[in-house]
Design a protein around this nucleic acid. Structure first.
Lengths: 153, 153
DNA sequence: TGACGAAAGTTTGAAGTCAAACCAAAGGAT
DNA sequence: ATCCTTTGGTTTGACTTCAAACTTTCGTCA
């Protein structure tokens, strides 16, 4: 029979289960959010608006793509959608003709605020079944995993 | 002004960060997997093959959709892709003319095994930066979150 | 100065996903 | 026996996302 300290090897299934669980949570939560977001905003779109408010305007698409861990093509798409809704403005960069700069419009700011209002009741319901302490507890570990995946790709 | 023990409320940003982190991990890991999976298998497709091996054949599409937390339309799509690759067979249910039954083909079994082989080196690289103990530690909490999201939607 | 590699954005094509509308079969209630 | 509701599955349209191919511009280096 295996001794007490056998190979701690077969961790494959464990990681597998971990990624599976994470995938389902991502799916369900994105879905939950998008059902209440106003203006048909998608999670990607809202995240970008929110980013502009929290971290400031004027980023280039390339930098935004890097921040969201997404390809540039994807970012192009998201920006086009947001621009067509009038929530952002994409200006040419005066110093680099290759580049552009992304700015929030007043209407975009409003949409972001309205989104937060719409999301609040959903989030308020969460602590009952899933205490904030648990979230805080696993967050650093998740962050570590995310960073590892990010650097080792 | 707010007293020292004001509402322990503002857990909004915390949850927000949690879902954000989870979303990025899901994205990165799915991507990592799909880059090595054989036969152009997608994560959804592989997951289904794997499910058939681990939990057995003969499930109905509806039950599979429920198991994967996905709409029936989505499952229809995935099954069609897998069937066109010859990895599964979808037979009519003899007892219920509305229903169907999904079976793994020998070729599907092989594809699943080959996928595991291809995934192994990737997973083997993980423990160095992210010990299995951490995975095991946060898994129950994630499970709890997933279950909450599942029941409260 | 001229050329070439690197960087920024875009486009295209394929896949997953959802919601909503739809058809068909089953099963209970009257 | 006949509705009528529920359930199983599909289709459509819109969205995200990726990889890969492409264009334009920058910046360095010879």
């Amino acid at each position: 029979m295996p001794p007490k300290s056998a190979k701690p090897d077969e961790s494959g299934p464990l990681y597998f289960q971990l990624f599976n669980e994470i995938g389902i949570i991502a799916q369900l939560s994105a879905n939950l959010f998008e059902r209440v977001l106003p203006h048909g905003l998608t999670l990607a779109q809202f995240s970008l608006l929110n980013h502009c408010v929290r971290l400031g305007d004027g980023w280039t698409p390339a930098r935004l793509a890097a921040a969201f861990q997404v390809t540039r093509g994807t970012m192009t798409n998201t920006l086009q959608k947001l621009e067509s809704k009038g929530f952002i403005r994409v200006d040419p960069d005066p110093h680099d003709a290759r580049s552009k700069r992304v700015f929030l419009t007043p209407s975009g700011k409003q949409a972001r605020d309205a989104s937060l209002m719409a999301l609040a009741p959903e989030l308020a319901q969460l602590p009952a079944g899933f205490p904030p302490a648990l979230a805080a507890e696993i967050l650093p570990t998740l962050e570590r995993l995310r960073i590892w995946l990010d650097t080792n790709r």
